[in-house]
Write a protein that binds this DNA or RNA. Structure first.
Length: 575
DNA sequence: GCCGTTTTCGGCCCGACTGTTTTCAGTCG
């Protein structure tokens, strides 16, 4: 059985949770959590690193002990340390930790005093009024436990970035109108451009006496006020999204923005650097003794620890501080760098606009080129095209190119990669195209070896140009295929073909870590909208977020090139 | 359990809010 990074990260987290309940050394607990985060953000499979003989202790937060545990898990699927913990504490206690308001101390008390091991037992005890009598608990705590058990069943945990933005926009507009409010900005994982966000962190600067907290908690979509103070409040909105609002004075803005943007791992590293220089860094500024020496802007905070400004998408504690220190921060690709879109649908298959409408919409966005890439017949649900229909579309595009000015229309297809790795369209048609996008739309459940081989064979097809949404995941709906993506990335480099970063907000596939692996391998990534309507070209913004989180520069992205350069690169794949 | 521009030992980020207390521990971000 293959052991993946996620399996290892989860076991480290479980160890951390259980150790915390045992009141182990908190720094030891943190070491496990740090290791889990490192493993998760790695991009490379640990199994492959080990197979290559890499030294795991070179990874941040992984020392001799944790490296040995990783190797043990790779070999046996489990680690002795966790088994030992399970002898002492039931694994189900972890579920209790995830109830808001219950931390390790309270979970331990519930277990020791009342013998509570599971959520069901906790619910029963709380209903019977037995929880309120424990030291440190009370009637209010008991009530909150019951509420959160009930709401856990109905609400989802994280929200797509795109959905969070829909909720955030009217709320920000509302806050900006409040008397005495100056700046209103979104911080947190949203500002870092994460594909999903767990909550919204909003930072405001205001004149003293502004009624911002009262007005915030009275916002029409608020269904619960979790906490309300003079500088910080937390609410839950109707659709379950949690929003934290923090208010600071304008002089603190940069320090507060940096602090509330995170990530936590990044902030800890910055603060430690500050400590090393005799500085204390918090959300109010950078202090030497009692004197504030920086904090009005984010840039001043970075400068105080000897670093240049680090863009928010990089602030994940994944090496950005070392890179900044060494003057090696990437110059991130931006939306305005994109000169075309290489994956677009029309109403010939499952799009909602005509060929001409889509082309005009692309031209309106200022693109130099757009590729029309409809589905093939195997994808019946999308009304995929037969060879005849694609031939007709090719002719239609030739005619359109003669009448439309200011944009070049490339002839393409999103062809199904069939189970055996062959393409769902005869070569005689494919050879008339400017590009061939291959995509998996079926048989997601093949074994890793079979899936990898299937896609590799498709890439070897003489007309194959670009692998669409390489992992096949749909956020919060469908897990990624089990596929050796690193191998496919290397194969794309050898073969001279390209990988997509699909910008649809529920795909964002490649993900951030995979983008980074692609960049390091020297693969070119195409950031495509996969637009099915004129409005969906704006999804490219989400793709840019992800690309930035994956450290991509303009030069790493295929469709930042000129039409001539793209044609030349695509011809290379078609020979 | 990790790590090193002061360190191979002795540190390890920092503050707000709640609920249960009667001065603060626990939790959270």
């Amino acid at each position: 059985m293959a052991v993946h990074n996620e399996d290892i990260a989860r076991q480290f987290e479980e160890i951390a949770d259980l150790l915390e309940i045992q009141e182990a050394n908190p720094f030891r607990v943190r070491a496990y959590r740090n290791a889990a985060r490192t493993v998760r953000g790695l991009g490379h499979e640990l199994s492959e690193l080990v197979a290559r003989g890499a030294d795991l202790t070179a990874l941040p937060g992984i020392g001799k002990d944790l490296a040995a545990k990783i190797e043990e898990m790779l070999q046996t699927g489990a680690t002795h340390a966790l088994k030992v913990l399970h002898r002492e504490l039931p694994a189900s206690l972890e579920d209790l930790l995830h109830i808001p308001g219950l931390g390790p101390r309270k979970v331990k008390a519930l277990y020791d005093e009342l013998g509570i091991k599971t959520l069901a037992q906790l619910e029963k005890a709380a209903r019977a009024g037995r929880v309120r009598d424990l030291a440190g608990f009370g009637a209010r705590t008991e009530e909150k436990i019951l509420e959160s058990i009930a709401s856990q069943r109905t609400t989802e945990k994280r929200f797509l970035y795109s959905r969070a933005r829909q909720v955030a926009e009217p709320l920000l507009a509302y806050l900006k109108k409040i008397k005495g409010v100056h700046e209103v900005v979104l911080a947190g994982s949203f500002r870092r451009g994460r594909e999903t966000v767990g909550d919204l962190d909003i930072l405001v600067t205001m004149e003293s006496g502004s009624p911002v907290m009262e007005r915030f908690t009275a916002y029409e979509d608020v269904v619960e006020v979790v906490s309300r103070g003079s500088t910080r409040s937390t609410v839950i909105l109707r659709d379950g999204l949690q929003v934290d609002l923090r208010a600071v004075e304008p002089d603190c803005f940069g320090a507060a923005l940096h602090y509330f943007t995170g990530s936590k791992a990044h902030n800890i590293q910055i603060r430690r650097m500050g400590q090393g220089r005799g500085l204390k860094i918090n959300e109010y500024g950078v202090f030497r003794g009692d004197e504030r020496i920086a904090g009005k802007t984010e840039k001043s905070v970075f400068r105080s620890v000897g670093l240049p400004f680090i863009p928010p998408p990089l602030r994940e504690g994944r090496g950005e501080i070392d890179a900044a220190h060494g003057g090696k921060l990437p110059k991130l690709v931006e939306l305005s760098d994109l000169r075309g879109d290489l994956h677009v649908h029309t109403d010939a298959t499952d799009g909602s606009a005509s060929l001409e409408q889509m082309v005009r919409a692309a031209r309106k966005r200022g693109f130099d080129y757009v590729a029309i890439t409809d589905h093939t017949q195997h994808l019946t649900i999308a009304h995929g095209m037969t060879p005849d229909r694609l031939a007709q579309q090719i002719d239609a595009i030739d005619r359109l190119n003669e009448s439309v000015h200011g944009i070049a229309v490339l002839k393409g297809v999103e062809v199904d990669i069939l189970e055996d790795g062959s393409l769902d369209m005869p070569d005689s048609i494919l050879q008339r195209l400017d590009l061939v996008i291959g995509a998996v739309h079926s048989h997601f459940g093949l074994s890793r070896a079979k899936q990898t081989d299937r896609i590799r064979r498709a890439m070897d097809h003489p007309y194959f140009s670009l692998l669409a949404h390489p992992s096949g995941r749909l956020l919060q709906e469908r897990a990624a295929m089990d596929v050796d993506l690193e191998r496919l990335i290397r194969h794309a480099v050898e073969r001279g073909c390209f990988l997509e970063l699909n910008a649809q907000p529920q795909r964002l596939d490649l993900d951030d870590s995979q983008c980074r692996v692609a960049r390091e391998a020297g693969a070119l990534v195409s950031i495509n909208s996969d637009a099915h309507s004129e409005a969906q070209f704006s999804d490219l913004e989400f793709g840019i977020n992800q690309a930035q989180r994956g450290w991509l520069e303009k030069g790493d992205v295929l469709n930042t090139r000129s039409l001539g350069a793209v044609r030349k690169l695509l011809r290379g794949t078609m020979d």
